[in-house]
């Protein structure tokens, strides 16, 4: 079942406009053979357009798409060495799951024995052997998506493209299938591009994550690096569920009462935005008194919504602390808070 590592993907200078709207703005990206890169961003950031440009379903205005060392920019989608999984599965309703998986091979003229053998191999790989003779509407959404994954892998493509493959599934199935996709991708050693707007999904599945905004890649990094060291205010705001406080800079220092004191980066101007994660807000260990506005028990952690006086409009932030330390904290109460300056990322306010 395993195969030799597939080729990489090289995108250079990809731009795409829809009328006056710039969907992709000179995007370049190198995906190493066998690597899975997640394209992460909000709706309209261009991540799906980029994926579809690789697939050949969109024609970029400019730029080059190279897959496995071959320039496929001018090739139609059906000639590209790709397999694609869609958000809404898009299995062919008139075919059984097995026939769906064998379809790409039949279109390439493979013998019926070879088609069946390969389809059965892949169905076993994705755990669908027992549903092989069912029609798509006779299996669950998760099973349909497994079938779609098997179909995409059937012709042994150089690159696997996944367009929000889990977003139509419920939460439990989503997590299970996410891990399955990663397991299979690593087992097959196939290069993959994975579009998602779910940062947790991107972090969990990808070797590297490309955060996209307004048609550009804002940051491309390994999940841990992206989480710890966001390079731009957009990355910081989009990844990691961070607090974002706009604060003044006085004599090169950013201050939030006794809760935070940090040096402003050079050239910051008069105001900055400080990003910090809720787990980096220390509660009950000195600092500035904050009012508890809400207490939300979330199992292992308890989330506190806090209000810190600033002299003007109070700064609102949230803190996560182990639930065992949250006993006795009540709405309306006051607790000292301190923000770990070492984990605060500060960017000039826009």
């Amino acid at each position: 079942m395993t195969r030799s590592s597939s080729g990489g993907v090289s995108l250079s200078g990809i731009s795409k406009h829809y009328g006056a709207v710039r969907a992709l703005d000179d995007v370049s990206l190198e995906v190493a053979p066998g690597e899975l890169i997640a394209l992460l961003g909000p709706s309209g950031c261009g991540k799906t357009t980029l994926l579809r440009s690789v697939a050949g379903l969109e024609k970029p205005d400019s730029g080059r798409v190279v897959i496995g060392g071959r320039d496929v920019t001018q090739d139609p989608a059906r000639k590209r060495p790709i397999g694609m999984v869609f958000q809404s599965y898009v299995l062919f309703p008139n075919m059984t799951i097995r026939d769906n998986v064998g379809f790409p091979l039949r279109m390439r003229g493979a013998s019926s024995d070879a088609v069946r053998k390969r389809a059965d191999e892949l169905l076993a790989l994705v755990g669908l052997s027992e549903q092989a003779d069912r029609y798509p509407h006779q299996v669950s959404g998760g099973q349909q998506q497994r079938g779609a994954l098997a179909r995409a892998l059937a012709p042994e493509p150089e690159v696997l493209l996944l367009d929000e493959p889990l977003s139509a599934l419920d939460a439990l199935v989503r997590v299970r299938l996410r891990d399955e996709i990663r397991r299979i991708q690593q087992m097959v050693k196939i290069t993959a591009l994975y579009v998602t707007h779910d940062q947790a999904e991107a972090m969990a599945i990808a070797d590297r994550v490309a955060v996209m905004n307004a048609g550009k890649i804002e940051q491309l990094d390994a999940p841990a690096a992206l989480y710890d060291e966001p390079a731009t205010s957009f990355s910081a705001g989009f990844v990691g569920n961070r607090n974002a406080l706009e604060l003044p800079v006085v004599n090169g220092v950013v201050r939030l009462g006794e809760a935070l004191t940090a040096n402003a980066p050079a050239g910051s101007g008069g105001r900055v935005v400080a990003f910090f994660r809720p787990e980096d807000v220390h509660v009950g260990q000195g600092g500035e008194a904050a009012t508890i506005e809400n207490v939300s028990f979330q199992g292992l952690l308890t989330r506190l919504h806090l209000s810190v006086p600033t002299g003007g409009e109070p700064a609102r932030l949230w803190a996560d602390l182990p639930s065992r330390n949250a006993a006795g904290l009540q709405v309306g109460g006051s607790v000292p808070v301190r923000i770990d300056a070492n984990h605060v990322r500060i960017f000039p306010a826009e």
Binding site: A77, R78, K79, F86, F92, M107, R151, P155, L161
Partner: peptide
């Protein structure tokens, strides 16, 4: 009703003419 646009895309990326 059959969402032919999506079916077409799925067929095309499977290599169908």
């Amino acid at each position: 009703a059959a969402n032919v646009g999506r079916l077409n895309e799925a067929a095309v990326v499977c290599g169908a003419s």
